[in-house]
């Protein structure tokens, strides 16, 4: 009987008007545009959830200060790149009337082997994020390593991006080619 009945999306109270079969409901709710946004600040256990227009206020009032720069091109200079443990580096880039989070995360996979993941997220909806691409480049002539991809929305979270390596990924050996005095410069361009 249940499979023949349509049930409302669990985010009805946030504005979603869809009704779905039990089989379709979980998948829709995972992607529902009305699902509240989670705190996008990486490396915290923050359980905040709210509407998109409250995210910036939450970030600035409840978390460590995040440096923001204006412009489509920036050099994200991550310092103390060899520090041990699970580490993140975060900054904000403001351009095209939006704010973008630039995130670099390091994970110690096993003794002596570290992986770094770098990517860009829009503080905006998935539809808005679809309009932007980003390019990240490590440069130390004659070597150069670049990654280009669609900007993700903070609505998509970061776990899948890292799990699928859908970002600029490099390891301990690669970083030695590009780091200078323990700092790594990543050229970031949003278009």
């Amino acid at each position: 009987v249940a499979s023949s009945v349509l049930f409302p999306c669990k985010f009805t109270s946030f504005g979603c008007g869809l009704t779905l079969s039990p089989a379709e409901k979980p998948e829709h709710e995972e992607l529902c545009e009305f699902r509240p946004y989670s705190c996008p600040c990486p490396g915290t256990c923050c359980h905040w959830q709210g509407q998109l227009n409250a995210v910036m206020h939450h970030l600035t009032s409840h978390h460590r200060p995040i440096t923001t720069v204006q412009g489509e091109d920036v050099i994200f200079l991550a310092t103390n790149i060899h520090i041990t443990g699970a580490i993140d580096w975060v900054m904000m880039q403001a351009c095209f009337g939006h704010h973008f989070l630039l995130i670099l995360q390091k994970m110690d996979k096993y003794e002596g082997y570290r992986q770094y993941f770098a990517f860009v997220q829009l503080i905006g909806t998935r539809n808005e994020a679809d309009k932007f691409n980003y390019r990240m480049e490590l440069n130390s002539p004659p070597r150069r390593m670049a990654w280009e991809a669609r900007v993700r929305s903070i609505h998509e979270g970061i776990a899948a991006t890292i799990r699928n390596s859908d970002c600029l990924v490099f390891d301990t050996d690669i970083i030695e080619f590009f780091a200078v005095s323990g700092s790594l410069g990543i050229n970031v361009t949003i278009s």
């Binding site: 990486p42 490396g43 915290t44 256990c45 460590r64 440096t67 720069v69 412009g71 091109d73 920036v74 050099i75 994200f76 200079l77 991550a78 310092t79 103390n80 790149i81 520090i83 443990g85 699970a86 580490i87 993140d88 580096w89 975060v90 900054m91 670099l104 995360q105 994970m107 776990a159 890292i162 799990r163 700092s183 410069g185 050229n187």
Partner: peptide, 24 residues
Amino acid sequence: RTYRMPKEVRVEPHKFAAELIHRL
């Protein structure tokens, strides 16, 4: 044609909480 050097921003590291690592 003018070329504007992109601004360089120093970003300090931040240690993760263990809970996040487990979620990943």
